[in-house]
């Protein structure tokens, strides 16, 4: 019970502080696509893959005092920062979750900016399509973000890097 909550907390514990809900959403989605066992359901939304279930789970964790949410004004809008609390760390001790190499991937993703993670998650969302079609989707659906061909290539490379990270670590 509460295993799915604990997995999200483990991801946050691995990442340290995550700045921005969008970033958090994209990080969990990418981790899920890397075959980490997250079962939140994601759909494609205006800003790429998004999970209402994850949003609700994060709210629950904040309400329970396991996550600290800091709301700060940034320009004309609000941004949220998330960190695990002491109570959250204690709660996590109830679970023996075997999610090897999650830490490396979460930390790596946390170093990227949310705009890039939005692109990476969009590429992953359409990865069943040929690369040219994926590019077409990105340029059509994300026209306002003005991603370049080079950035899409970087996204593909980054996905490979993350996958290699998981595979290499698995072999080790």
């Amino acid at each position: 019970m509460f295993t799915e909550h604990a997995k999200v907390m483990k991801a946050l514990a691995a990442a340290g502080e995550i700045v921005g809900r969008k970033k958090l959403q994209k990080m969990i989605y990418i981790a899920k696509k890397l075959q980490f066992p997250f079962y939140e359901k994601f759909n494609f939304h205006f800003y790429g893959p998004y999970s209402e279930e994850l949003t609700c789970r994060i709210e629950e964790l904040c309400d329970l005092g396991f996550l600290h949410e800091m709301k700060e004004k940034k320009g004309g809008y609000f941004q949220y920062r998330y960190t695990l609390t002491e109570a959250g760390i204690q709660f996590l001790n109830h679970y023996d979750l075997d999610m090897p190499y999650l830490r490396e991937c979460m930390q790596d993703m946390n170093e990227q900016n949310s705009r890039f993670l939005e692109l990476v998650s969009t590429v992953l969302y359409f990865e069943h399509l040929p690369k040219e079609e994926v590019k077409e989707k990105v340029f059509l659906l994300k026209s306002k973000q003005r991603y370049t061909e080079e950035e899409v290539e970087q996204a593909y490379n980054y996905i490979e890097q993350l996958r290699a990270k998981v595979k290499n670590e698995v072999r080790a």
Binding site: F2, E4, H5, G20, R21, K22, Q25, H45, F46, Y47, Y50, E52, E53, T55, C56, R57, E59, E60, K74, G76, Y77, F78, Q79, Y80, S114, E118
Partner: peptide, 20 residues
């Protein structure tokens, strides 16, 4: 059973770039 187990939601304005 938790509220996040449900497929319904209520309105939240959210964060810039989170959802429309």
């Amino acid at each position: 059973d938790s509220s996040s187990d449900l497929p319904y939601d209520f309105y939240r304005p959210g964060e810039e770039g989170e959802r429309l």
